[in-house]
Write a protein that binds this DNA or RNA. Structure first.
Lengths: 232, 232
DNA sequence: TCAATAGTGTCTCTCAGACAATATTTC
DNA sequence: GAAATATTGTCTGAGAGACACTATTGA
C-alpha cells in the first residue's frame, strides 16, 4: 500500500443492492423474483437488484428503487433496509456484500406490467422450495418475511400492500396473510382509530354481506407504531 | 462492458465498515471514538472502522469485530447491524457506502486499555457537539442511540453494558441512562423474572443501604424481547 | 436512631382477545 | 327469511405505572 486511501490498493468486495419486494396475492404472501440472464446462477430465479451506478444513483436507496422500477415499472410504496449479507461462500466470484432492501406494493400495481414479460414473476413465499433460487436469496427472503411479520404485529406497515382505497376486511386479510394467524376485527378497528392515519371516504362497497366502509390513508401521515404487539 | 460481471468494469463505491460502540460511563451513554491518522478528516474524531480485508474477514461482522479489537483489545458482548449509509456527499473521495454496526460493552473491559493510548476515547453522546466529528458520523451516532433507546424499551439488550455480575440497581441505572427517563424498579424486577435470562449468585454487595442481590446471565441464553414497550 | 437502598404487595389503567349482539346487504 | 359480512358493545386478562409498605444495611 503505497498511497493510503487509494481504492485500487484494496481487493474490494463485490457490492450489490437487492430487494425483497412483497405483496399479497390470492391471500398469500408473494415475493417478486427475476430470472437471471447471466452467470452465475444463469436461468435461476433471484431477487431484483444489481450494482450501484454511481453516475445515476445518489444513494443505495436509489439503486434499489431504480432496479425495481426497471423490473416492475412502478416504485414501491414502502422501502426500508433489511440487512446486508456478506462472505466468501455466497457468490462463486469471491467475497461479496449485498445490501438488501425490503419493499411493499399493492399487487395490481405490478401485475399488469409483469404479465407481459416472462422473466419477472410473483411467487408465493411458502412455495419457494419448488424453485431453484440463486445465491442465498431463499434464506434472505425468509429473513425478510420474519421482519415483515414482526412489523405487522406492532405497526400499520402492511397497509402498503393495499390499494389506495380499501376496507377493513381487506386490511384484515392482508395482515392475516402476513402473520399466518387470524386476528380480531375489533382489534384492527381499535388500532385504525388510535393511529389516526386513515380517513373514511364517502363510499361503501359490497362484500357479500353488509356494505363495507372504504378507507384511505390521510395525506402526509407517517406510519404509526404501537407500544404493544398483537399476540403471538 | 465487454465481459459481464468483471468487477473492474464498474466504478465501485468505496465500501467501509464502521461501528458505534456504546457503553455506560458515569451514568451517561458514551461512544468510542478514534482520532483519524489519515485524510480525509485527519485529526478529527470518528467511528472505529475501515475496509474489509478479504484475506482475513469471513464476513463484514468479522471486519467490525477485528477493527474494534484493534482499538479496544476486547470483543464487544453485543453486535448487530444498524444500517448502511451511502451517497456522493458523505466522503470527499466520492460515492461511498458504510455499513454501520452497533455494539455494547461494559466500560471497564475497555477503559483499562484505552487509557494507555491517546487516539481512542470514550465521549458522552450528549456532548458530541463539542468535537469535530468526521464524515456523517455524528448523525450516525444519533441514529444508533435512537435504535438503542428503542431496544431498551422492549428487550434486555442493555444488560450487555454491565459487567458479568450486577445488581438490579445497576441494571436500572444503565437503562435509565440509555432512555433518559426513570423507570419503576418493580417493572424491571418483573421483566427479569419473566425473561428467565438471569440467575442469582450466592453473593450480596453493599449499595449504601440494604445489601443487594447479585445476578448474572444464565449461560447460553438468548436475549429476550417483550411484547410491550416500557412507556414513552 | 436515621438515612439510604433493596425488595414486596397491590391497586389502577390500557389495550389485546374473545365473543355476543346488532346492522345491512344479497339471494 | 337465511346466509354472509360489517359494525358495536362489553367482559376478561396480562402486564406496565404508581406508590405504599417492609427489610436490611451503615453511620
Amino acid at each position: 500500500m503505497t498511497t493510503p486511501y487509494n481504492i485500487n490498493d484494496y481487493q474490494n468486495p463485490l457490492f450489490t443492492v437487492d430487494s425483497v419486494l412483497f405483496t399479497i396475492k390470492n391471500n398469500a404472501l408473494n415475493v417478486l423474483l427475476v430470472k437471471r440472464a447471466n452467470q452465475p446462477f444463469i436461468d435461476h430465479w433471484g431477487l431484483p437488484g444489481g450494482f450501484v451506478d454511481i453516475n445515476k444513483d445518489t444513494s443505495t436507496d436509489q439503486t434499489a428503487l431504480r432496479k425495481l422500477k426497471e423490473k416492475t415499472n412502478v416504485s414501491p410504496l414502502y422501502l426500508e433496509q433489511l440487512e446486508s449479507y456478506s462472505g466468501h461462500e455466497r457468490d462463486p466470484r469471491g467475497f461479496s456484500v449485498t445490501l438488501v432492501y425490503f419493499a411493499l406494493v399493492p399487487e395490481q400495481a405490478v401485475s399488469t406490467h409483469i404479465e407481459t414479460v416472462d422473466d419477472v414473476k410473483w411467487i408465493e413465499v411458502n412455495s419457494l422450495n419448488t424453485l431453484s433460487i440463486a445465491f442465498d436469496h431463499a434464506y434472505i427472503i425468509q429473513q425478510a418475511k420474519t421482519r415483515l411479520q414482526q412489523k405487522a404485529l406492532y405497526s400499520m406497515t402492511p397497509v402498503y400492500c393495499l390499494p389506495p382505497c380499501f376496507t377493513i376486511g381487506q386490511f384484515k386479510q392482508v395482515i392475516e396473510a402476513i402473520i399466518e394467524k387470524t386476528i380480531q376485527r375489533k382489534t384492527l378497528i381499535r388500532r385504525i382509530e388510535a393511529s389516526d392515519m386513515f380517513e373514511t371516504i364517502d363510499k361503501k362497497v359490497k362484500s357479500g354481506g353488509r356494505l363495507a366502509q372504504v378507507y384511505k390513508i390521510k395525506p402526509g401521515v407517517d406510519i404509526v407504531n404501537f407500544e404493544r404487539n398483537l399476540s403471538i
